[in-house]
Design a protein around this nucleic acid. Structure first.
Lengths: 298, 298
DNA sequence: TCCAGCCGGATCGATTTTGCACCACCGATG
DNA sequence: CATCGGTGGTGCAAAATCGATCCGGCTGGA
């Protein structure tokens, strides 16, 4: 009889493309993955991977195995969500995934209020990098900014939140200096690979053609504060920062819409219901801030 | 993340009804099962069993888990049969399940011929007690005697073999003694819970009303040989035994039909095809023996 | 050309898991 | 009432697994 958990390792390798990537995702040593895959191949009597120098690639047999491994994973996820959905106690774990800026610049105090209101809820905020997969039960609730409603996953239940606008911001001091007569143009600060958006007009402040590239969103804001240049930011970030001002002559633009996503079974949970109601209420209160109406224009 | 293999332990306990029974079936120590179930319950945050003195019984949550655990098992079995079906080499394992009398009294020499013909096939004959489950891949080929065609599993592929008749047999010596004038009636020998069949006529030999009960089929034949009584046997057993004769005045009766069963994916295997063709050929040759036509009536 | 970064594979000590023996408990049975 | 076979539960030592590390090979870019 095969070890069912080996199938989980198999899936990780099939998706990761290499033993080391799979080990990374599984949170174990790559030698372990190597051994488990070897054990599974031995017990099945089939080689499921070609061992290339660049990594592991599925053989024809591996492709066929993958199909049923996916089925097992789906059943496993359904199993987990089902038992989670049964759990109607307030006490327990609640995992939320959301874009980092929303967490750091706006919602963290609200989360603090929430856990103060419900001390028995063990909350886990996943705002690191990539979107967690709700279907895989990596998280119970997802707060996302969607740019096109058609990209919403169909298997999830969505609760629409306020619309989100962005603007062009620069350092308040730098703007004052510029108006006082400093003639040198400033730069556009763009996130890594993104270019300068088409809709971006320069407004009253002249810019050089050469952008300043930066990878980290947090560092980007610091750079703007330092007067290094100007950049586009969501209004709830830029307006809330006393060191920043909107660049005169620029317009607001639509960023996207905030959505609260939950999954079918977990949605029945008391914890999830409490949280979604709480957050949607707070989000509604933030609607003017999201829309960029909370401050008077200079 | 849960350990998928724990789900396999869960299934064993849910079906076995107790930790020890599950451990027996899994071939591990019962303490291990205890720990794995505890680990799974802890990770899911749900108690899936009531711990009764008489064993483990599923809770409502456990029932829901069972549904998806069954799905996982089905996927796992499909995975195994799929890779087995891909295996077109002659070398390898071939597991056959069949009723014990067929193996001990008739087909074992044919199996010997088969393995002599194909030395690379590792053959495993499962003729102990209960029917192996093909869907669970406990065996690759099943030879069964079916009494009603409607009881054939729909998901299996069946190859119909010869029909099987049975008769009433007794010891040759005892019959001679009876004819020589010994007046005492003899008994019916019946298998454990079975009674005396309705169609059974006593023929020329008087019997007492009290049956002789026996549990083991092998011991049953020995008892008949000893002249202890008479009993119904398949013709291929009774006719082949020189110490036994059919009871004069009794008729043959239909026992059932021999079927060769295989499962969809494994059926494509070269080993399975070779075996089924070989066996069905031999079975056809045995058709007169099965029908009770191979000996002349006394 | 070289070198950094990735890959799989092998080794060895540390950690976890397992198996064994044992206990307490319950129910049926003589 | 004692016994016996069944259950779950628990320490402890052995065995299997895992993680850290090193190694050789490959690849792509400086």
């Amino acid at each position: 009889m095969i070890d069912w958990d080996d199938v989980r390792y198999f899936l990780a390798v099939a998706r990761g493309g290499s033993v080391r990537a799979a080990a990374e995702g599984l949170g174990v040593n790559h030698a372990t993955v190597l051994r488990r895959i070897g054990q599974l191949e031995e017990r099945l009597g089939v080689h499921m991977f070609e061992k290339l120098p660049s990594g592991y690639r599925l053989t024809a047999a591996g492709e066929e195995v993958l199909e049923f491994a996916d089925q097992m994973e789906a059943s496993s996820h359904q199993l987990e969500t089902r038992v989670f959905g049964r759990d109607q106690s307030v006490r327990g774990l609640l995992r939320v995934t959301l874009p980092p800026p929303l967490a750091t610049h706006l919602l963290m105090p609200d989360f603090a209020d929430f856990v103060r209101l419900h001390p028995d809820i063990e909350m886990e905020v996943q705002s690191s990098g990539e979107l967690a997969n709700l279907t895989n039960r990596e998280a119970d609730v997802a707060i996302r900014i969607v740019y096109d409603r058609k990209t919403l996953p169909l298997n999830l239940h969505g609760l629409k939140g306020p619309e989100l606008f962005g603007g062009v911001y620069m350092s308040r001091d730098r703007l004052a200096a510029s108006r006082a007569g400093a003639p040198d143009p400033i730069r556009w600060i763009v996130i890594s690979i993104h270019g300068i958006p088409d809709w971006a007009s320069e407004g009253e402040v002249r810019t050089t053609g050469v952008p300043f590239r930066i990878t980290d969103a947090g560092a980007q804001i610091v750079a703007v504060r330092q007067g290094l240049g100007m950049t586009t930011l969501p209004c709830f970030v830029g307006d809330a920062d006393p060191l920043l001002v909107r660049v005169p002559g620029t317009d607001l633009h639509m960023y996207g819409t905030v959505w609260l996503l939950t999954q079918g079974e977990t949605r029945k949970t008391k914890r999830v219901r409490l949280f979604t109601e709480f957050v949607s209420c707070r989000l509604a209160a933030y609607a003017p801030l999201f829309a960029g109406l909370s401050i008077s224009r200079d």
